[in-house]
Design a protein around this nucleic acid. Structure first.
Lengths: 109, 109
DNA sequence: ACTTAATATCGTAATATTACGATGTGAATA
DNA sequence: TATTCACATCGTAATATTACGATATTAAGT
């Protein structure tokens, strides 16, 4: 008990849900927004900007990396994070494929 | 420790994240898909369709109702759930406002 | 080689989520 | 009014997430 029963859902449902789950945290939205605004950023920038502990920011960055929406490239002793545009657009498309469905509402509603 | 520090983020960030969080579970995606396909449904249909306990389905429906994306109307001894089209479109728009931002990628990336 | 700087990872406490059985509630029906 | 049906809510166990301090790790600068 307690764990999500992923085996009972369709692959597409699990896929969409897990990407939305990663985006479903304000720190991760704020991180993405900061990267967009600055075009790139390093972990320490986010620690200062958001006021969360360095370990916490690093953990959130790891989750964002796990779905491929950001990418980090080593630059000396720091790591520059950027949006992975291809994945960004894929996710937007996937979301809109779901949300563009024609909604028909029964009389009763 | 352990709880999300919502007070440090912007309202829009919290709002977007909390709506994405609700959608970030495969059961809730599957429920929405089922309602779209059938145009309406009752809790028991979902229990049969998804194979989760009635209490679990009821809990997921409650979360979907909490963000207003579905609406339930009493019909005798059952409750008919439908998509709330206005909210559905609002969320899609809010998501796309975020995702339509112009992504500029630094050379380093 | 030593120090500093930036980040990742580990361990862990606090909290939240997921799932389910049991029980309560309200409407239709016998 | 007793029963049944559909659903919500309560209580709770299992698990996951969030956050942080402490401790690696790795690259630069001294």
């Amino acid at each position: 008990m307690g764990a999500t029963k992923t085996e009972i859902y369709k692959d597409k449902e699990n896929e969409l849900a897990s990407f939305l789950k990663v985006l479903g945290h304000p720190a991760r939205i704020a991180i993405l927004q900061y990267i967009i605004d600055q075009e790139t950023c390093i972990c320490n920038d986010l620690v200062e900007e958001l006021g969360l502990a360095q370990a916490t920011i690093s953990q959130h960055l790891k989750e964002l990396k796990s779905i491929g929406i950001i990418q980090g490239s080593i630059d000396g002793k720091s790591v520059g994070y950027c949006i992975e545009e291809k994945v960004w657009k894929q996710f937007q498309e996937e979301f809109n494929t779901f949300f563009d469905q024609d909604i028909k509402v029964k009389q009763c509603c």
